[in-house]
Nucleic acid binder design. Structure first.
Lengths: 180, 180
DNA sequence: CAGCAATATGCAATTTATTGCATATCAATA
DNA sequence: TATTGATATGCAATAAATTGCATATTGCTG
């Protein structure tokens, strides 16, 4: 159950609504943690019951209401306890690799198409990450120190995407070779 | 629901019991797909009901009974259909990265410990993969052709592990720098 | 010979995640 | 002015995964 901790982590950085969290999952944490809006709202409800978080209701006449969530002391404690604890490694589930493994059953042209698409989306992702890195590296020393840890996760993204692309190139080269 | 397809993939290569599949998940597919024995047995039961697989019961006097599962035509078809279909990308869930993201709350020494452990286990994994690769590269051309697609998944493992290690080194270096 | 690891299978309860549905406003655009 | 996309929230049903328990044999080791 670590969506809980992912949410605590996000709220620790900045208060926000469920929708804000969704956006932050998509934009920032998205590379290493994902959650649907249904999951997030449900989890927030549970965590509120558990008193890990609290919210201020912002009633607006024109727009729909907002619940701005904040960490409680208890939530802050839960987070720092979790951060201290060693974690068991998460399970990998990569359907593309299962598919490649069974690749002798697939149409090679189609597989090639899919791999090209895979490579290109990872290239785009890499470009996005590099742009964020650039921004970081051009920010003030103070800002850099503040964001040092999140920056390291960005580095994971960059290194990971490069690995994806490198592998995709190998697969593409192989698929083209056997076609010829 | 792709545990189903992972199991179909394994059975397509070779028939086996639930336990065999568990071992093959651990040993071979483990890098990119994981499943507990409870999950596997439950899934096998469901798939049998769906007529995707069948089994021969091997009653043994001395040892506990075995159910040796095989693909049915229907299962084979399901697999090849799945392999044809483009897949949506799976969701990443990497708790370590969430933890690093919230790393300013953590004890840095402990984090360093954890990262060293992380790096070393990935180094060991890489060694394992390289040994398997070596075996592959020294096998006959025929064998190599047969295992070409699984070999590409192994390459993913090797490239992925190298990326893990590279990143871990960066994090370790950073943690040591701020300690000094 | 007692205990433990490996083989071999499974149920039940609970937790987590997905899928589908539902509502409501605002701003832009066609 | 009608539609779409973004904001903002949620319920209900189902599917998938985890956790805990349970059984039974073989072979090895201390």
């Amino acid at each position: 159950m670590s969506l809980k901790h992912a949410i605590l982590t996000l709220l620790e950085t900045e208060d926000g609504t469920g929708y804000d969290l969704l956006k932050r999952f998509e934009d920032h944490l998205g590379y290493f943690w994902n959650a649907s809006h249904q999951q997030i709202y449900a989890q927030l409800k549970t965590m509120h019951k558990e008193a890990l978080i609290d919210f201020q209701l912002e009633t607006q006449d024109d727009k729909p209401d907002k619940k701005i969530y904040t960490l409680t002391d208890s939530g802050r404690q839960e987070l720092s306890e979790w951060v201290q604890q060693p974690l068991k490694l998460g399970k990998v589930k990569d359907a593309l690799l299962v598919k490649i493994y069974a690749g002798h059953l697939a149409d090679k042209e189609q597989l090639l198409e899919e791999m090209l698409h895979y490579r290109d989306s990872h290239k785009r992702m890499l470009q996005t990450f590099l742009a964020i890195e650039d921004e970081y590296l051009n920010s003030s020393k103070k800002k850099q120190q503040e964001l040092a840890m999140p920056y390291l996760t960005l580095r994971r993204g960059i290194i990971g995407e490069r690995a994806c692309i490198e592998w995709a190139e190998e697969v593409i080269q192989y698929l083209r070779k056997i076609r010829a």
